[in-house]
């Protein structure tokens, strides 16, 4: 199995297309970091203008932790497209090249073949997130320095102490990996039904956009189905940046506001990943290779 995964990774990382995602992420993050380093204070003032009327701030509001949070909010909406580029191509791309029939004449069971391909796509997703984490957190901290993380939510604001932030980012990136693996599994599933990758990529993105709209609209009938949509749970990495308060309304350092919600959402995403993967194996085992 390890040999198979290594071969799949070798194929992924020998293709120029693979590096489009890494280049796009690098360009996007660099542009935002340059913009914030030139005119970031004005941006922070604009975001905080209502709060600044009531509170005085000391220290560095626009620090590496806040820049990373801003970047994650922006990127985790667009990264699914970059993941779909590879995941939705895993089987359909082989069918398009004509290599699928040659691969399947080799002494490898279709189940192992499917699992190895998914594992390789998952490694790609993981590496893409590691790259995002490096650029958005490590490089931002290097450029902007560190201080407390101050986040404005819809009806309140959260201030996280400087020494209480890093583990939250570790949790958020871990959770983001689950969210992105759900996209990987969905794209991978669609890739079994076409002999070119355009259809599965478009299908993956259409499902995500459609479900995201349903997840965010406040119409009562939609609210009933929202708990069952994976897109509702994909954004819950933000829960790592909320903390409990004690009876005196003092924030408890090192706490999470709603750990049960994170655990429940993570479980739902894991179930989606397992479901899409099981469906992929089932479809592929039955598939007649005619191309």
């Amino acid at each position: 199995m390890l040999t198979l995964i290594r071969i799949e990774l070798y194929k992924i990382f020998r293709r120029p297309r693979t590096y489009i995602a890494f280049a796009a992420i690098t360009a996007l993050i660099t542009v935002i970091q340059v913009g914030l380093s030139i005119d970031g204070e004005a941006y922070a003032d604009f975001v905080m203008q209502t709060i600044k009327q009531s509170f005085d701030f000391e220290g560095k509001l626009l620090n590496g932790y806040l820049v990373c949070y801003i970047l994650l909010q922006l990127l985790l909406v667009h990264v699914p497209l970059l993941i779909a580029l590879i995941a939705a191509d895993m089987i359909s791309g082989e069918a398009n090249l004509g290599t699928l029939r040659l691969l399947l004449t080799k002494p490898i069971s279709r189940t192992r073949f499917t699992l190895a391909k998914f594992a390789a796509a998952a490694v790609y997703t993981f590496l893409l997130l590691v790259w995002i984490a490096f650029l958005s957190l490590v490089v931002s901290v290097w450029i902007f320095g560190t201080d407390d993380l101050f986040i404005v939510k819809s009806s309140y604001a959260v201030q996280l102490a400087e020494d209480d932030v890093l583990w939250r980012y570790a949790g958020a990136f871990g959770y983001a990996l689950l969210s992105m693996l759900t996209v990987t599994a969905l794209g991978f599933f669609f890739s079994h039904f076409a002999s070119n990758s355009i259809g599965p990529i478009v299908a993956t993105m259409s499902v995500i956009v459609f479900f995201t709209i349903l997840s965010t609209m406040g119409i009562p009938i939609f609210q009933k189905i929202q708990p069952y949509l994976f897109t509702t749970h994909m954004v819950n990495w933000k829960e790592f940046f909320d903390q409990q308060v004690d009876a005196d309304n003092i924030a408890i350092s090192g706490s999470l506001q709603n750990p049960e919600k994170i655990a429940r959402s993570a479980m739902i995403l894991i179930l989606h990943i397992a479901g899409f993967l099981a469906a992929s194996v089932w479809v592929f085992r039955k598939k007649d290779v005619l191309t």
């Binding site: 293709r15 090249l97 004509g98 040659l102």
Partner: peptide
């Protein structure tokens, strides 16, 4: 299948790899 070698219609392989790398890859898959 370990003891079968096949060419089915067009012998499509990975265009971004060399003949040597393609051969090595499929040998390992065999």
């Amino acid at each position: 299948l370990k003891n079968i070698g096949a060419v089915i219609e067009k012998p499509d392989v990975y265009p971004y790899l060399s003949a040597y790398d393609n051969l090595k890859l499929f040998a390992r898959l065999s």
